[in-house]
Nucleic acid binder design. Sequence first.
DNA 1: CGACAACTTGACGGGCGTCAACCGGAGTGG
DNA 2: CCACTCCGGTTGACGCCCGTCAAGTTGTCG
Lengths: 245, 245
Amino acid sequence: MTGQEDVAALLLSRFSLLTKLSQDDRNAIARLSFDIQSVPAHHHLVREGAPISRCCILLEGYACRHKLNAQGHRQIVSFHVRGDLLDLQHLPFETADHNIQTITKSDVAWVPSSQLQRLLIDRPAIAHALWQDALIEASIFREWVLNVGRRNALTRIAHMLCEFAVRAQALGLGTTDTFEFPMTQSDIADATGLTSVHVNRTLRRLRDSGAFEQDRHVARIRDWTQLKSIAGFDPGYLHGLGIAA
Amino acid sequence: MTGQEDVAALLLSRFSLLTKLSQDDRNAIARLSFDIQSVPAHHHLVREGAPISRCCILLEGYACRHKLNAQGHRQIVSFHVRGDLLDLQHLPFETADHNIQTITKSDVAWVPSSQLQRLLIDRPAIAHALWQDALIEASIFREWVLNVGRRNALTRIAHMLCEFAVRAQALGLGTTDTFEFPMTQSDIADATGLTSVHVNRTLRRLRDSGAFEQDRHVARIRDWTQLKSIAGFDPGYLHGLGIAA
DNA sequence: CGACAACTTGACGGGCGTCAACCGGAGTGG
DNA sequence: CCACTCCGGTTGACGCCCGTCAAGTTGTCG
């Protein structure tokens, strides 16, 4: 199990990617109070319409944001990994506008929203990191609109894989060649606006082309140049995830 | 033509929707220096990849954000109207990740990014308004991912119209029944991930159903209940645009 | 080893894209 | 004031990408 100091350390390492923190900033983060919790796979961390009083940090595992249309069909709007702040997007609001759900068994930490709000006012460097984090995510949302709106199935899935690979590497979760990827084909379908049947067909085409393969929950990019070319992938919109790319 | 005070007044009225401002806040906004400019329709205000040094405010007219895929096909990710701050999404970044383009002949004001960054640090109430503005827009991006990913053409277009109608009314640009709507069918296509041909067919279905009609650049919602029902529209994700809805 | 989730594959159909042609209105220049 | 041009809207024919339905296989966990 994780302790309070481990959560603070994880936050510090994440913020350090985005900005330069003073000792006062570090102390302020160390003073945050976390409520740590283990949750199973497919557990709802936040539900659309629920009031926002605390902010969730993903300590371990994989999660996603999603929305449902009137018929209950799911659209995933982002994937999340260890270290991601899952509620920044909701921070100034009264109620949640989307669902946040784990994909795998996960550990999370909860912080009262009020404590984060205070950091926004008192600690400009931290505020700057939080702005960057939230706006990089907004940039990813825009890229996903393009992805589902103006790319075909092959390109769409390839693009999603490229993005995840780059993010996983930048956050120290693997290399661009090999990384953990626990999403089911049904998850990929909901993220790309396709059906799981068509995702299956399309993944096979990618496998046959020699660009990408999967062994259970481990993804392997066999030909990065080719996959990038299929996807038309340009990582500029990730803004280096705050890191000098 | 518009003067410096008019721009400040427009910003004040916008921020007042989102937060409560003190006299010091108002003074700080009045001290911003604006560079005012008239631009023609289809003019690029910001180009993807360009460095960010100033922030654009739309004083009059209509604009959109968009991205291009590898084949040069356009995806519009948001529409903008009078009073919108067009570069909040880019504020902490070095370079633009998308294009911003006028739809109609427009007036804009430019503010140095550094002056806005300063407000973020010095004026918490204004910072809060800017956070809300940026995150409401992020929420709209998420809804658009759902829109293009998990809705059919009829629902998709109806949803886009509902959203625009609600925003136009909230910002005082018309009623929910009648509002200016200068987007071409090609613009609508690029916003919904369809082709202009199919948009045409689908708009006719909407017209035939009696829910919506257009006379040149004026949109008229003839049956709001029906249009909302076709769209499966729930305005929660707009967070009242900061207004008590 | 039974149950269930996830993956796989095939047949078929439809929603939307593509191509092409024509129309109407607004702006422009002679 | 009229002819020309061009952009945007409109409609039809045709085809493909992807959805739907259905069945079977594999993998995993209790």
